[in-house]
């Protein structure tokens, strides 16, 4: 297994999607796979005005590093990025960027899927949806 996987793990107010190619680029990587999560304009046909994200920052960074530890064991990767936004985010703004670079594409495709699925399941970050007349913490209630 690759022992020198580099990782970029951050919680930030503003994500810069334009930087991600340079962040994941590596002389040993012939493949870079990236997933962006963005703010959608509607939930169940209700118009969303914006989203608010908050994190238990120290624990979130710890969990994000744990995910990186896991994928380092599972796939041969040169670089991994896990970045999530906090604060208010408008429609079409990016809220999460995960990605991986590897010698060949299979590893980075598979790792990228694992990164976003595991982040959504485990990292202590919460999203509140704001509508014109209401606000709802996502997934809080059955």
């Amino acid at each position: 297994m690759e022992v020198n996987m580099e990782r970029i793990i951050e919680l930030v107010e503003d994500l810069d999607p334009g930087k991600v190619y340079d962040e994941l680029s590596h002389p040993g990587s012939g493949a870079i796979c990236v997933f962006f999560g963005a703010v959608r304009e509607a939930t169940k046909k209700r118009k969303v005005s914006h989203l608010f994200f908050e994190a238990y920052e120290n624990m979130a960074l710890k969990e994000m590093n744990r995910i990186a530890d896991e994928i380092e064991q599972k796939w041969d990767l040169n670089k991994v990025i896990i970045k999530h936004a906090v604060g208010n985010k408008k429609v079409q703004e990016p809220v999460v960027i995960v990605g991986a670079s590897s010698a060949h594409r299979d590893s980075s495709f598979e790792a990228c899927r694992y990164l976003i699925d595991t982040l959504k399941e485990k990292v202590p970050i919460w999203k509140k949806e704001f509508f014109d007349d209401d606000e709802v913490w996502v997934s809080a209630h059955p």
Binding site: G37, F53, A55, Y56, M59, A60, H84, V95, V96, I116, L119, K120, E121, K122, V123, P124, I125, W126, K127, W137, V138, S139, A140
Partner: peptide, 10 residues
């Protein structure tokens, strides 16, 4: 101690 309601990042 922290209370962790259902997470919803991403």
């Amino acid at each position: 101690i922290a209370l962790i309601p259902p997470v919803s990042g991403g």
